[in-house]
Computed example of a mutant assay.
Amino acid sequence: MLNSLVVGVLLMNLFAAALVVARAPVYRTRLYRPMLLNLALSVAPFVVLAVAVVVLLPLISRGAPPAVVWGSGIVLGVVWLLMLPNAGYLITELNLNHRREGERVPEWYDVLLVLVLAMSGVLTTVLNVFLVILAWVILRYGDTVAPLAGAEARAVEAVVLLLVAFGIYLGRHVRLNSWDVKHPTHLVRKIVRHLRTPGRLGDAIGFTLLGALFFGLMYLVVVGPVVQGLVELERLR
């Protein structure tokens, strides 16, 4: 089940990239590079997870002190969380603002393209969250997956998805990027200035809550059966 989920998400990302790249030569139009950039950034959380595996597994296998393992995990987790909204950000491509007037590309193609692009971002987001929750459960509870269906895991998932939704809002409406965290003072000032504008705070809260609810429902649909299957397999062993 987990293998099918991972392979399916990877294929969806490849499908999205193929549609973006094929659009230019097939319809003799420009290559819309921002889409490719956003798609590449959406995969960045997977890269962070791969780095985490390379760093943490040797530490655990060598019996490193728990403080070192957890400290390294927290640092990598923060980097991962900062990059994660880049995946969900792909849902904002649904506005079709890449089309020019008199575009040769059929509208049906671009509609399908942005749908696949958005779904690749959604699936990448939920898979990333699940993999991190799975790793956290293994590190915290050992060789058992039962806590995946517990209230603690649900609470962590909810917090992460709320942060993801807020990060997407900041990316689209405040035009912030993950690497802007290198200048925290400027970052905070820019966010505060934006939220003080009349009506913006309500927009931010509304988008964050509804966006998190959307991702939560997608998580339930996509990851829920996987969690249920893993817990059931463990119970039958």
Rank of each mutant, 00 (worst) to 15 (best):
V48P: 07
V53E: 01
V54M: 12
L56W: 13
L56G: 15
P58K: 09
I60M: 15
I60S: 14
S61K: 14
R62N: 15
P66S: 07
P66Y: 15
G71T: 14
S72W: 15
I74C: 10
V75S: 14
L76K: 14
V78Y: 05
V78E: 03
W80S: 10
L81I: 06
L82G: 10
E93A: 08
N95K: 01
N97A: 09
R100E: 08
E107W: 01
E107N: 00
Y109R: 00
L113P: 01
V114T: 12
L115F: 07
M119C: 04
S120P: 02
S120D: 03
V122M: 07
V122F: 01
T124H: 04
V126L: 03
L127F: 10
V132H: 08
A135M: 06
A135Q: 06
W136C: 02
I138F: 13
L139G: 15
R140A: 14
Y141K: 13
D143I: 11
D143W: 12
T144C: 12
T144Q: 11
A146S: 11
R154T: 12
E157R: 14
L163N: 06
F166D: 01
L170E: 11
G171V: 03
G171H: 11
R172G: 08
V174W: 03
R175W: 02
S178N: 05
V181I: 14
H186L: 09
R189A: 04
K190W: 03
I191T: 05
